[in-house]
Design a protein around this nucleic acid. Structure first.
Lengths: 125, 125
DNA sequence: TGCCGATATGCAGGCGGATCGATGCTGCTG
DNA sequence: CAGCAGCATCGATCCGCCTGCATATCGGCA
C-alpha cells in the first residue's frame, strides 16, 4: 500500500462528519475510516499513550518495545501506520528515531466525530 | 464472536483516554480499540450517517440497502456490529427493524479521544 | 393455515493486516 | 576502517473480517 501523506489533512478541508446533516460521500467515508482504522488497534493506542506520557512527550522505538511486549519490527510497523495517518511525527536524531504526537491531530478526529451542533459552519461539496 | 453488550458503557466508568497523563492498560486499550474498530469501516460510517439524516432519525434495513450498494445480509451484519458496539439501538416494529443512533454514544468516543486538558477531573484507577 | 415480505444467521471465498525472524541500512565509536 | 547498535524493510504465516449466496425465522395477510 502506497504512502498516503497525512490523511488527516485531507479531511479537515471538506467538513466531514458522520453526524452532520447530510449523508457523507463514499470517498469521505473511506478517508475517515482509514484514519480511524489507524486508531482502532490496542497496540497503537498504547503507543500513542506511551509516547504522550513520555518525559519530553517523545520516545524512540527502543523505549517502546519493552512496555508493549512486541518485537521491534512490529513496533516500527505500528509507528509507521500512525505516522502515515498523520497522528505521529518522526524526527531522527543520530541513530534514534523519536516520535511525538502531532498537536491536535487526535482532537481533529474527535471533532469530526462530534455532532455538528457544536460546529458552526458546514460547507457543501 | 459472542455478544458483548454495550462496549461503550464499560468504558465510560474508568476514565480512559489515550492522551491522559498515564499509559493506558492493555485491557482498556483493547476495549477502546474494539469500539473504534466498529467505527473504522466506510460502510458503517455511511450507515450511521444515513440513519442520522433519516426523517425521524431512524431507518430500517430496507431503506439502507440501496444507498449503500450492499446486499441485505451485509447491511444487517454491519448494523449488528454497530449495535453491539453500543452505537445503535434496534427497535422492531412489525416486520421492520428500525435503527437509530444511541444518544451521545459517538460523543462519548470523541470525549475519550479528546486530550485531558479539556476535561477537568481525571481519576486514577 | 398457507404464502409472502422483511431480517437475521450460516457458510465460504478472498483480501487485508498483525506479527515475527532475517536482513539491509545508517551513524557512532574504538 | 571494522564493529556495533538502533531502526526500517522484506518475506512468510496466521488470523480476522468484509462480502455475498443460501437459508432460517418471524410477522402480517388472504
Amino acid at each position: 500500500m502506497e504512502y498516503v501523506g497525512t490523511a488527516l489533512a485531507e479531511m479537515t478541508m471538506p467538513q466531514i462528519s458522520p453526524l452532520a446533516g447530510e449523508p457523507i460521500e463514499r470517498a469521505d467515508a473511506e478517508r475517515l475510516a482509514g484514519v480511524l482504522k489507524a486508531l482502532a488497534d490496542p497496540a497503537r493506542l498504547r503507543l500513542l499513550s506511551l509516547i504522550q506520557s513520555a518525559p519530553e512527550g517523545e520516545a524512540c522505538v527502543c523505549d517502546l518495545t519493552a512496555p508493549l511486549g512486541l518485537s521491534q519490527p512490529t513496533v516500527s510497523h505500528h509507528l509507521r501506520i500512525l505516522t502515515e495517518a498523520g497522528l505521529l511525527e518522526r524526527e531522527k536524531r543520530g541513530v534514534w528515531a523519536y516520535y511525538r504526537l502531532v498537536p491536535s491531530a487526535i482532537a481533529t478526529i474527535a471533532d469530526l466525530l462530534t455532532p455538528p451542533r457544536k460546529r458552526a459552519t458546514k460547507r457543501a461539496r
